[in-house]
Design a protein around this nucleic acid. Structure first.
Lengths: 327, 327
DNA sequence: CCGTAGCGGTCAGTTTGTGTCCGCTACTGC
DNA sequence: GCAGTAGCGGACACAAACTGACCGCTACGG
């Protein structure tokens, strides 16, 4: 039998059972020398268990907070929030579902019995919106690394292979040099909002395509994001001007509908009121026919402001729809 | 570092998180050979942990119930998952963001310092998809009450006011009598999947409209959901037959595109492969023109299978698009 | 009846664990 | 402040274990 491993677990339960354990007693109980006990305690500490020790007479080892002692004082709402958030984590963020499940069982352990029961009773089924399976998985370590750079305000270099749809460039693109400002999740995908030092402009990078290079660069002083609000910036990024690989097509139309109605039905895009039953809509999409199709959703007369490609797409779709309407 | 001992703890943690773990997957996760995984499992069994295993295809390891686990600690991945899940909780579930934030600070307290720093460094901005603000807030207490009924298998009576869009009925509808089976979140909304005793059929209720009545009824024996899988049932509910207030229009078309391509671009809906470049798509929407418009996104020839309303909608949209294409 | 997946034996090479010995430091009580 | 106690940790040599590779075997499901 593997004496070392099982002894470690035994040591854990001994430390759990009593407040103070002199090293000599532990040595005897575990059948090893005091030196080995000290080594085992070290190992536990390396694993993260907070083992406190006191020197001098009445010294000894004791298991500190963090694993058992103070049952975590959650109120009911916190317990519900924890459970729901961890059980549905996969819906908004791919790639961490299993870690989230483990985290839930871990916190469960340090809860008072009453809350533990609540957690057990709360079983949530999070149904993915279809298409979620195709979302890229993001490594927790990568998230951590990027966020650490944001937090430390350290310049970040990374490789960023172009999207496969992009035209093949000549040779390997040089690494990006950036000042990372925000880590953002939007629609189940991760983005890094950063100032691109070479392009001297803000960029929104897909986290799953980022390959960080070491070492990180010097510290930088954060700039102010245009508009100040990250959420607004990112939301606008996907509807406004063409970003790197995002919304290659962007068009402008006038709809015979109240601005209120249109914005209620519009996920992204900019709506501007022109009259009680008339508004301007600027919207982005991956392709011109796609954009034209989306604009058809509004069941209202459409006047194309531009660009011409959008007009052509409407003509294209009109032909296709005419054909589809034939029995 | 004692790789063997910590690996045992990691193995325990993994086994807790999921029902079934193929040996090969565990081997990869732990960074050892499958042989060593088998040995580790043996060790756990020697230490008294009930690890069940199944041979053959779909085999794997699973942790039996009932054993007292050693105090497990958060590892790096759990810390990241916890932080991300709690910071982005509002994205998938409205109404718990504040409780989630408080829960995070509470959990933070029982983490080793190293992980605490990681948590602090991980700052995530969760950007709502537009339209999320209109999502109804759901009370944690209500979720808890419903989930408790599901867990306890107690029949549930509740008032369920009809959607405001429905025709005004005469008088107040009587309370629903149901056998609640699953609590489901989908696209930021909450649903209760239950067997409606009066209608003798399955129903999907919007949680935010449910007003429970007390007391709850007697215990019931769960029925089997058609198809067995809740996720599939709910997903189908919103794309298939008309549910309560969901997807009033549903149509079927054949597209000249590979099924893979279509499902990659389809949030909801059922895709069926008909050939290498041909597939059937069943999709739901709020209106016929809306459905026709969405189908235009795929930039492929469309053959309408039915219903006739969809064909008409295509003709309607064709006229509109022709007009829009005029300068 | 075949493919998958868990089971377990053997073996060699290497890593780790262990006890012993020893000097050091922190705390307590006298 | 001085002794005694108890935890800390380096060094070292020997023993034990762990690990991966390779093997054939057994259930199970289709």
């Amino acid at each position: 039998m593997p004496t070392a491993s099982s002894r470690l677990l035994a040591l854990l339960s001994l430390l759990q059972a009593r407040r103070d354990w002199p090293g000599a007693v532990l040595a005897e109980r575990l059948g090893v020398s005091p030196r080995t006990v000290r080594r085992d305690v070290d190992r536990l500490r390396e694993l993260g268990y907070p083992v406190a020790s006191a020197k001098g007479p009445d010294g000894g080892y004791r298991l500190g907070a963090g694993s058992a002692l103070p049952p975590l004082l959650f109120d009911d709402e916190q317990a519900v929030a924890l459970t729901v958030a961890l059980q549905t984590a996969a819906t908004s963020v791919t790639g961490i579902e299993e870690a989230a499940a483990r985290a839930l069982t871990t916190v469960r352990q340090v809860m008072p019995a009453r809350l533990r029961h609540r957690v057990d009773a709360l079983r949530v089924v999070a149904v993915q919106r279809a298409g979620a399976a195709t979302k890229p998985r993001v490594e927790p370590a990568l998230l951590m690394a990027l966020s650490a750079a944001v937090h430390a305000r350290e310049e970040l270099r990374f490789d960023y292979p172009p999207a496969p749809t992009a035209a093949p460039a000549d040779g390997v693109p040089p690494p990006r040099r950036t000042q990372p400002h925000h880590l953002v999740t939007w629609g189940g995908r991760w983005y890094l909002v950063a100032w691109d030092l070479d392009r001297a402009d803000w960029r929104t990078f897909r986290v799953d395509r980022i390959r960080p290079r070491t070492p990180t660069g010097p510290r930088f002083t954060p700039r102010e994001l245009p508009g100040g609000d990250v959420a607004a910036y990112v939301a606008g990024r996907f509807t406004g001007a063409t970003g790197p690989g995002d919304w290659p097509c962007r068009g402008e139309v006038i709809l015979d509908l109240p601005a209120r109605t249109v914005s209620a039905w519009t996920r992204d895009g900019v709506v501007e009121e022109l009259g009680p039953d008339r508004c301007r809509l600027v919207l982005g999409a991956w392709s011109w026919p796609g954009l034209a199709a989306v604009l058809g959703r509004y069941d209202a007369d459409i006047e194309v402001v531009g660009p011409p490609e959008l007009r052509e797409a409407f003509a294209h779709l009109a032909r296709r729809y005419t054909a589809a309407a034939q029995p």
